[in-house]
Design a binder for these strands. Structure first.
Length: 235
DNA sequence: TCATTAAATTGTT
DNA sequence: AACAATTTAATGA
């Protein structure tokens, strides 16, 4: 079942703390912001829930307030390819919303998450009226393109340590996911689902990465101490 | 607030 | 996949 069908039924105003996590709101003028906030809806997703599925018509532009989502697509052979994880502050589906087509990938909750939705009509209204919003979306599209290319490269890597490192680096993309500091709440199991490795192997990789000083492993999450190393070091 | 217990997560085999 | 060890969250006095 998809979120938009069920969970956006009942709406409630977002708290200021929740609004704070939405990066593009800061780019809007007061009256634009007012209109956007007015339309924002919020929903809870349980682990495994699909926020959107390939081919479904896009009625919402989505963003993560809390939790962690996985973006993936099925190729012709029926294999699932994971593009990236979406941490809090991440928004997706703009390409689809722009063209009013169907989603081109699946978005699934890796853990209990809180998802915000902006109706496509409001999305278009903002595009028509707000320069700040246009800047945000353009930036977003550009970064996403870079991520997809990176995802392909990551997929071809057979060194698990590097796969984990690069995937983590993608999650800490400051443009796509601003506000996400140096700490990321993600369990090793969740990371395993994201990267497509076993939890054991991820654990081993994290230990290696930590030994190299690129990250610090914590309970239920990790801290990035050297993002550049995650991006380029050959571990 | 503290102590106890249950649940979640990690590190290893 | 299964296990024990560790950390956090929940409960109730």
């Amino acid at each position: 079942m998809s979120l938009e069908a069920s969970l956006f039924q009942r709406r409630r105003p977002l708290t200021t703390a929740e609004l704070e996590v939405i990066p593009w709101l800061k780019r809007l003028l007061p009256h634009e912001r007012e209109r956007a906030v007015e339309d924002l809806k919020i929903a809870n997703a349980q682990p495994g829930d699909f926020v959107c599925r390939t081919g479904r018509p896009a009625t919402y532009w989505f963003g993560v307030i809390e939790g962690l989502l996985k973006m993936s697509a099925d190729n012709a052979e029926g294999q699932t390819m994971t593009f990236t994880g979406v941490p809090p502050g991440g928004w997706f589906g703009e390409g689809t919303a722009l063209k009013r087509e169907g989603y081109r990938y699946n978005i699934q909750a890796l853990r209990k998450s809180m998802v915000a939705g902006l109706h496509v009509d409001t999305f278009h209204w903002l595009l028509d009226h707000s320069i700040g919003f246009n800047r945000f979306v353009m930036n977003q599209l550009n970064e996403r393109l870079g991520q997809f290319i990176a995802a392909r490269e990551i997929d071809r890597m057979n060194n698990p340590n590097i796969r984990v490192a690069r995937s983590l680096a993608a999650l800490f993309n400051p443009v796509l996911y601003p506000g996400l500091g140096t700490v990321l709440r993600i369990t090793q199991q969740e990371l395993a689902y994201l990267v497509g490795l076993s939890r054991q192997r991820v654990n081993e990789a994290l230990t290696t990465l930590a030994a190299q000083g690129a990250i610090q492993v914590e309970y239920g999450g990790l801290r990035v101490t050297d993002l550049q190393a995650l991006r380029s070091a050959p571990f």
